[in-house]
Design a binder for these strands. Sequence first.
DNA 1: GCGGGGCATTAACCTGGGTTAATAATATGG
DNA 2: CCATATTATTAACCCAGGTTAATGCCCCGC
Lengths: 176, 176
Amino acid sequence: MDFKNFISAHGKKISKQKGEHVFSQGEVDTNLYFIKQGLLKAYYISDDGKEFIKSFLLPDSTIASVSSFYSKAPSPFSVVCLEPCELVSVSFDELYKNSATNQDVAMKVIDMLLQLAMKKERREYEFLCLSPEDRYRLVLDTSPKLLEKITQNDLAKYLGLTAIGLSRIKKRVNNT
Amino acid sequence: MDFKNFISAHGKKISKQKGEHVFSQGEVDTNLYFIKQGLLKAYYISDDGKEFIKSFLLPDSTIASVSSFYSKAPSPFSVVCLEPCELVSVSFDELYKNSATNQDVAMKVIDMLLQLAMKKERREYEFLCLSPEDRYRLVLDTSPKLLEKITQNDLAKYLGLTAIGLSRIKKRVNNT
DNA sequence: GCGGGGCATTAACCTGGGTTAATAATATGG
DNA sequence: CCATATTATTAACCCAGGTTAATGCCCCGC
């Protein structure tokens, strides 16, 4: 059984409306989700109620709380739909167990994790090495379609800024 | 052949002095390195010559340039020894190919990648959600041994600060 | 269709950290 | 052992972005 068949056999289709959560900070959720349609965001809420956005999720991307799966710990972040969404969920436990006997599944999991590692490494680089203005310029270059769909407030929280800070940066960048 | 045997059969022992590089930014290096002894740092140099430290590497940790392996691209960062080091290197290509037929190796690779993903996710969280002072406090709590071995300048570059900024934060934190 | 909420921007004030330069203590290499 | 380099801290000046508040436009739900 290759990976596609595994997903067909074990995956569950999920439909959610805008504003509905896939999973929430503080819950244990050991599923892996494939985004088929729609737009979601993964975010943290701090103790004092501030929101920080770790990523936006477009079709063909995946999301899981790795720490939830790995240590059965509550997820440190939430995932919410920004518009009506279609997803397919797969139990990461089942996927993991299946990897132990199914070569094609194991290689696919390795591939997905390599891509996740690279994505996270780029993000780390952006925070460590780039100024807020450079991070904004990068998003302008790499994700123009995404920018059309999300609010300036959400973009700011993704870039590690406030909406006011982003507004100043936009003003500066657009007058260059 | 399980993972340990794979490393014994295919791993190469490497000894390096302080100041020597394991690999350098701009080079393609598709190896995975296991740190057996010593201390190293992984770092970026920006176009204007500034250094940013992505991680410190202690015994029992691993390092690879995932993008180098995955896309055969030049590594975006370097790894240098901060004291005499012993490492074991393994070709990631060989490891990857071996995963395709060897279940134990594949599961071990999945495990390592899951741990890398969690590590990078924590780092993303620290940059996105914590102030420089909170990041410093976190390192005080979690890595006191590491702090004894590295310079304040290197710690500052790891935290996304200058040495002067870190000095001010230390003064503030120690007067609390 | 309209009222209220959401969204984006701007002003004024403030603060934390960057930059440059200087100083002093410690470590290293010849 | 000594000279030099390295390391760490501080001062002075500056600026980017946070915070609070206000304003105006647009969108959404009733």
